[in-house]
Write a protein that binds this DNA or RNA. Sequence first.
DNA 1: CTTGGAAAGTCAACAAGACTGCCCTATTAC
DNA 2: GTAATAGGGCAGTCTTGTTGACTTTCCAAG
Lengths: 185, 185
Amino acid sequence: MQQAGAGRSFGAGQGSRLAAGPGGETLLFLTDEQLRRGIEAMYFAYRAFTSDPDLMLEEMGYGRAHHRTLHFINRDPGLTVTALLDVLGVTKQSLNRVLRGLLDDGLVESRVGRRDRRERQLYLTDKGAALEKRLSESQRARMRAAYRAAGPQAVAGFRQVLESMMDRDTLRQFQSLRDLPEGKA
Amino acid sequence: MQQAGAGRSFGAGQGSRLAAGPGGETLLFLTDEQLRRGIEAMYFAYRAFTSDPDLMLEEMGYGRAHHRTLHFINRDPGLTVTALLDVLGVTKQSLNRVLRGLLDDGLVESRVGRRDRRERQLYLTDKGAALEKRLSESQRARMRAAYRAAGPQAVAGFRQVLESMMDRDTLRQFQSLRDLPEGKA
DNA sequence: CTTGGAAAGTCAACAAGACTGCCCTATTAC
DNA sequence: GTAATAGGGCAGTCTTGTTGACTTTCCAAG
């Protein structure tokens, strides 16, 4: 094992100090330099994180926006365009161009809403699901490897920090995405 | 305390199992769903993470590319254009437009290299340093709050996972950035 | 039943920030 | 003296985001 650099990580033990606060809780003193390292780690990791799907997408004329669209339709089949707009945080026009491409290429299917016939409910076709699977599997593989290399405690910490970094609305959005539709592999 | 959602985090204790591997090392069994949660957390957190600087930048007609440029010039004053190109991972032409803007607006200064007069060494002006400070302080504040909310162990885990997520070259780049120039506040 | 408004789609125009390819100068290295 | 390197500039393209304006479809309240 020993995935890239797993052994000699530079965690919180390097210059940061712990102290008991007035209420007894543990406080962390972090230097600006340590925070900056965290910022840079975030930048580089995110870049690496998106690099595998980006390569596949580029080959077939798609971009990151297509990936995100496929991802959220896959996670919540039948969601409306408005719901998708909300989770992606982009404008209708911006999404529409991407969505039209996916519809034209037969990766996504748009059905008239059952409750409200103005709404369009979005589903992946088999072809779309296949691409989504390819894309997400590459990211899962990277995430899995990182998790394995860093260990269970690190995984918990990773998620805690990421969640704490979100602002209220984003966190709410993230958490409302909690429940998945079916136990798909 | 209790920054947004810090308390009820969904770390590794929810469905993941630990087991002793053949060599005695601890193994983590992660479901695809848990990995997907990690992927989404990364997406939402990164978006939140860049949102504060993005707002400031937009007000003054800059973009994220300007931020990154200022960041790396600030971290390593006097670095050459090629070095900056390398760390940003973009093309010369792409950087050039951004860099020209910063030079024209008097945020960055370009001096002829001392060793090699073909090279241009880049420095922030006072004005540039002031903007960089504003931008990075907003991100440091967010990072600091997240670290405080999540705790020291979480911080270590966060960084371990991020590092493990980088591929070889990215990690090398990240780690070669290790040493900072001076003890600036 | 009509009308107001919401949901969705479409068209046009624009900007940032990536890209490629090509050309040019200054300077260093061989 | 020539080749290679560092950098800059110009032209054009692409993706993905943005506004603004307009239409169609459709539900629901008057």
